[in-house]
Design a protein around this nucleic acid. Sequence first.
DNA 1: CAAATAAATATTGTTGACAATATTCAAAAT
DNA 2: ATTTTGAATATTGTCAACAATATTTATTTG
Lengths: 219, 219
Amino acid sequence: MSEFIFKEQANTSLREKVTNDLREAILNGDLAPGARIKEMDIAEQMKVSRGPIREAIRQLEREGLLVSYPYKETVVADLGASEVQHILNPIRFHIEWYVVRTYLNLMDDDFFAKLQAIVDDMHASVAGGEKNRLVDLDLLFHHSILELATERTVMLTWQSIVNQIRLHFAKNLPFFDHDHMASDHQALLDAFRSKELERIQAAIVAHLGSDENLLCFSR
Amino acid sequence: MSEFIFKEQANTSLREKVTNDLREAILNGDLAPGARIKEMDIAEQMKVSRGPIREAIRQLEREGLLVSYPYKETVVADLGASEVQHILNPIRFHIEWYVVRTYLNLMDDDFFAKLQAIVDDMHASVAGGEKNRLVDLDLLFHHSILELATERTVMLTWQSIVNQIRLHFAKNLPFFDHDHMASDHQALLDAFRSKELERIQAAIVAHLGSDENLLCFSR
DNA sequence: CAAATAAATATTGTTGACAATATTCAAAAT
DNA sequence: ATTTTGAATATTGTCAACAATATTTATTTG
């Protein structure tokens, strides 16, 4: 057989689509924090049975987007800014810094080009006022970095926090300096290109570490 | 109505019991890393239908104990020691250090007594050769600390890694110095009692931070 | 005999019905 | 009027049957 002409057809189960759609609705704000999730409602709107819905709920619960009270109800989670600042962002920082310093040698021209394309798109999004796209690109940038790692735990941990970060963005995006968001990632990329660990660390700290919660790692 | 005489009856769904039993089996080693999980097998052994089993699988997947390949199979996850060292333990460190420095004022005599009882039990477990109990007590010690925090994210993050830590323990316990495990926690507790932040930080670093991955935080 | 094809089996994915639990609302009692 | 009780309703939890997909085995074909 000829090989690798076509990309493998994604075998997405209904459950997976439901999970994605539900997550999207939460991050959109269509389902605001505190909103109750009624299985039957969702099932009817999506024209599927409750089975896949329930499985999706279990998954989103573990992603921190839903909170479920047995035999009672499940509601959309709320998230304080301080939790992002003191807990989630430091974890992001830690993982990313680990991956970067461990897999720096895997960063080649192709990789840099890919990141540069994302940053360029970010600038375009800012200019065009496409705020949601800006968030997607921001997280895609970081996702691309984490893809360098082979450890399953890296992606697993990322997935356990990334959607809470998205929720935070959705809530607070209006208060962010969008220009700064784009140029910040350019600075990160430039630091990667230099391959100087200290400069890279400083860039990541500047990007993720707030002044209130300064982190310094050695090695 | 009279009040607070009886403890609230735990309303555990079947799904929850299944989740706990499955998790237990994995951590016991009854289901070793790589072992395939056949829904029907489990369902028949537990005498329940596949519904709750599938929901439990989704949950344990997000806890990092199972890996699921759609339409194919789900297997018990494997975990490298380096992932614990470089990713999970640093996250533990971060959360615990955040909670301790933030909620230090909540540590009262009752709290210390509770931790002391756990440490005493640890020593007893070492003497009695009850290794699994030692692990439980170790993690209970840290869980008790995290309970000081009110942020939902703290427990959520802990839950997303604690069972992987347990899996790591189950795999490597024979190579640990059990005496040292117990006395290490006594040192932590003594540091808490002193309420000196620098001493506490040093104790946590000594406990969780390896020399290869030294962490230092300010504030 | 080796490779391709097709039938048979095993396993996961989905559904709709039924059971258990919680909530709401109206009637009764104090 | 307030509380208590109990029926009615809504919602979540569980199940067993059916559908879709993957794997294995047997069969054919060159």
